[in-house]
Write a protein that binds this DNA or RNA. Structure first.
Length: 577
RNA sequence: GAUCUAGUAGCUCAGCCGGUAGAGCACAUCCCUUUUAAGGAUGGGGUCCUGGGUUCGAAUCCCAGCUGGAUCACCA
């Protein structure tokens, strides 16, 4: 028996063998003809119909209540749970007379998949259940699931360690109520957004994830290497520049759900890979895009939640249109009382210092204003608000404001004090674009490691001419967080990035035995945590001798203790390896 | 990256001033035909995260590390 397995795992493996001995394959190949889901059975049940509803269901055993010759099983399928009533005389067959007492009661466990054919009825306590007439083993589970019980929506013994939940999301999905719902809603958000774009005739496209120049955003990229071309490649940080090339190419509107990768810190709102949606529409400006964005969000919220209100923590947020619109300068005035209109870099630095905001020499005018806004204003916009007209310097891909050359035609949509969407009237003047890129290069030389690279092909595309265009990007993960009331991005990503689990290498018993260690003692060493023969060579022979003799005594193994000389010979043998 | 905090049975957790490790669920054995966080009785199960140190003695105290979480920093 494998010493690495817990007793429960060993029992389950034993049951597996016994099932096979009884002629029952625990992992059958044939399809199982299910014709009903738990939730549908419950909602379609009609007590007054004298005709029994025959069903065939399949799922995982989540709990068992065994009462002698009769038992109740909670079966969980993709949509929910249904109770199964099983009696000995109903499921035993001539071919398998031990179906109830041995197979069901002894060899099946919580977590196993079974199929049930039977009819729907209501028990004396009123629960709609399936009366089993036939039980089929569909898949044996060798690891015990965490047992989570629910009563009146309260979870008992919830499986709630975030590390285990994210690493073993499959377990989280099986045992924790509501986790699957978040991901079903995530899919609905995508469906709803696609529908919104598709009905307007915009085209979903795919653009490169491996890029020679990571453009379209200010962020540190992941770098990788292409062997055949012997050149560096970057994982995309945004798809903006590619989508605009498509507008140059003559598409009216294009959009993409873009997996982006940014080599930055991780926390409850940042995962190294995340999904943004970006859309670009020709002949529009950012005013049009504000209308478009708020309509889109309202629609998605209604489709997903059936209401325009969402609850995030203790805040209720209304996503009903129209949303407040305020310029960045007015927002700063509104929150700090300071009018920064017309200030130069030095004035702004002084304002920041007066407000005790950390600033440094590498920050240009744009970054200073951004920082000022971020520190003093952003968190105050809980209800959806469009902040408009950002400083030129921090928006190198955005068109200059039609009335003020210091500003750009840009907005961000803030909800719950955080950026949700970002949009421009896109810069389509190729000469201005090149100058802005060059300004970014100067910032980069000044020490701003997020300043953008110059993408000359993108400039060349603009030189062929891009129609006036408005573009918008929205963080899909953040949107799903908002619509599901989650406070951590890890809760809306099926598999958030985690540091790799450390798995200790385990040498086989035989490897220990090669060192002239008797089999019984090899097992003892492994049980004591010496999993690899390499570990032996650094040990003190006296201490090891005492330890293993002590282990023998403590665990009443009744083994004959080896001599000190034998033990030190083991260690010598290990050192020679 | 910094600070704080946590890691004990398959799961959720107790375990104070250092003295042979506990509970509930799960599991095993036996009894029991309609129960529902569902029966009853009995029982098995632990590298107390890892490695050092202090001590006669460490799950407990100290140091370092690993892995989470929170806060901050960073961050379109």
């Amino acid at each position: 028996m494998n010493i690495e397995l817990s007793d429960q795992e060993q029992y389950r493996r034993q049951s597996l063998t016994e099932l096979r001995n009884l002629g029952i394959e625990p992992y059958p190949a044939a399809l199982y003809p299910t014709n009903a889901f738990s939730t549908d059975i419950k909602s379609n049940f009609d007590e007054n119909n004298p005709q029994r509803m025959e069903v065939c269901v399949a799922g995982r055993i989540m709990s068992r209540r065994i009462m002698g010759k009769a038992s109740f099983v909670e079966l969980q399928d993709a949509k929910g749970r249904i109770q199964i009533y099983i009696t000995r005389d109903d499921i035993n067959t001539e071919a398998q007379p031990e179906m109830y007492n041995t197979v069901f009661k002894k060899l099946l466990d919580i977590g196993d998949f079974i199929g049930i054919k039977g009819y729907v009825f209501r028990t004396q306590t009123g629960e709609i259940s399936v009366h089993a007439k036939e039980l089929t083993v569909l898949s044996k589970s060798l690891r015990p699931l965490p047992i989570v019980k629910y009563k009146d929506g309260v979870a008992y013994d919830a499986f709630d360690d975030p590390e285990q939940r994210y690493r073993q999301r499959y377990v989280d999905l099986v045992v924790n109520e509501g986790v699957k719902d978040i991901f079903l809603k995530r899919t609905k958000v995508y469906q709803s957004m696609r529908e919104f774009f598709n009905t307007r005739g915009y085209v979903e496209v795919e653009t490169p994830i491996l890029q020679p120049i990571p453009g379209g955003a200010a962020a540190r990229p992941f770098i990788t290497h292409h062997n055949a071309l012997d050149m560096p490649l970057y994982l995309r940080i945004a798809d903006e520049l590619y989508l605009k090339r498509l507008i140059v190419g003559g598409f009216e509107g294009v959009y993409e759900f873009s997996k982006n990768f940014r080599n930055e810190g991780m926390d409850r709102t940042h995962n190294p890979e995340f999904t943004a949606m970006e859309i670009y529409v020709a002949y529009k400006d950012y005013f049009w895009m504000m209308d478009f964005t708020e309509q889109m969000i309202e629609k998605i919220c209604l489709d997903v939640n059936g209401t325009t209100e969402v609850q995030v923590g203790d805040k209720t947020i209304s996503l009903k249109t129209p949303y407040k619109r305020i310029s960045m300068i007015d927002a700063i005035k509104e929150n700090t009382g300071i009018d920064i209109e017309g200030m130069d870099e030095n004035d702004l630095r002084k304002v920041c210092e007066d407000l005790q905001i950390d600033v440094d020499e590498t920050m240009g005018k744009g970054k200073l204003i951004d920082k000022l806004f971020g520190e003093k204003c952003e968190a105050n916009y809980v209800q959806p608000t469009f902040i408009t007209d950002y400083p030129l310097e921090m928006s190198p891909l955005c068109k200059r404001h039609r009335n003020n050359p210091e500003l750009t035609e840009r907005f961000e949509l803030l909800v719950n004090g955080k950026e949700l969407a970002n949009a421009y009237s896109e810069l389509n003047d190729p000469i201005d674009q090149l100058e802005r890129f060059q300004e970014q290069l100067r910032l980069s030389e000044k020490g701003d490691d997020e300043a953008m690279f110059i993408d000359m092909d993108f400039v060349r595309a603009l030189e062929y001419g891009m129609p006036p265009t408005s573009g918008m990007g929205i963080g899909m993960d953040r949107l799903v967080m908002l619509l599901t009331g989650q406070q951590a991005i890890q809760e809306v990503l099926l598999f958030p990035l985690m540091k790799p689990e450390k798995v200790q290498k385990v040498d086989t018993k035989e490897k220990f035995m090669e060192l002239d260690i008797p089999e019984a003692w090899a097992e003892v060493l492994q049980k004591m945590g010496i999993k690899q023969v390499d570990q032996l060579k650094d040990l003190n022979p006296n201490k090891l001798h005492q330890d293993i003799c002590g282990f023998n005594k403590k665990n009443k193994l009744a083994l004959t203790n080896p001599s000190k000389e034998e033990v030190s010979q083991w260690i010598d043998n290990a050192a020679k390896k």
